[in-house]
């Protein structure tokens, strides 16, 4: 079986002899894109967060074959070595990581999350479902799908706020 997968703008034709391969393992093992991490393989940590058409999702709970024809963005598609994305630079500045293992997932998630917020999506912390505010609690709630055992949460919140408020 062969699927076509656009990853970070580059089109890949991927031979899959086994439909059991998850999107996460396809990225890590078949395409060598190991920036997307595996912390639990069951949707419980967020380390594998990627974007599908700009929306964040856990790559571990999706099959690669389900994404034939899809466009995926991974951490490798955010910023470059020469020019880090503002979110990446903010994570460094605010020390939003320690071991770094949850970090790619945090950054992809945060990037997509800001977009959700811009579109006015509500969260459980929104007092008014129709007009969510950009509070720290909103950031915290929306980032709660990304666990960090080094527990850099306060720095992550600072980094996201900083990146969001930075002039584009």
């Amino acid at each position: 079986m062969e699927i076509s997968l656009t990853v970070n703008g580059a089109q890949h034709r991927l031979r899959l002899d086994d439909p059991r391969v998850t999107l996460l393992d396809a990225l890590r093992q078949h395409l060598g894109l190991t920036g997307t991490k595996k912390g639990c393989d069951h949707g419980q940590c967020g380390a594998c967060t990627v974007m599908l058409d700009g929306r964040r999702m856990n790559a571990c709970l999706s099959l690669a074959v389900m994404h034939d024809g899809d466009a995926i963005t991974t951490i490798e598609g955010i910023g470059t070595a020469e020019a880090l994305a503002p979110m990446q630079a903010a994570f460094i500045r605010h020390d939003g990581f320690q071991c770094g293992y949850c970090t790619p997932g945090q950054i992809v998630s945060a990037t997509a999350m800001l977009d959700e917020l811009r579109q006015g999506w509500p969260s459980q912390m929104s007092a008014d479902l129709t007009a969510p505010q950009f509070t720290d609690d909103e950031i915290r709630e929306r980032m709660s799908g990304n666990l960090c055992r080094c527990s850099c949460y306060p720095n992550i919140v600072d980094a996201i706020r900083d990146a969001a408020e930075a002039p584009a």
Partner: peptide
């Protein structure tokens, strides 16, 4: 100071155990 390995970690290019096979 910022961590010198920070750029690798935020870009997903720092390699952990089950990587770089």
């Amino acid at each position: 100071l910022d961590r010198p390995e920070g750029p690798l970690k935020v870009r997903g290019t720092a390699t952990y155990a089950d990587e770089d096979h």
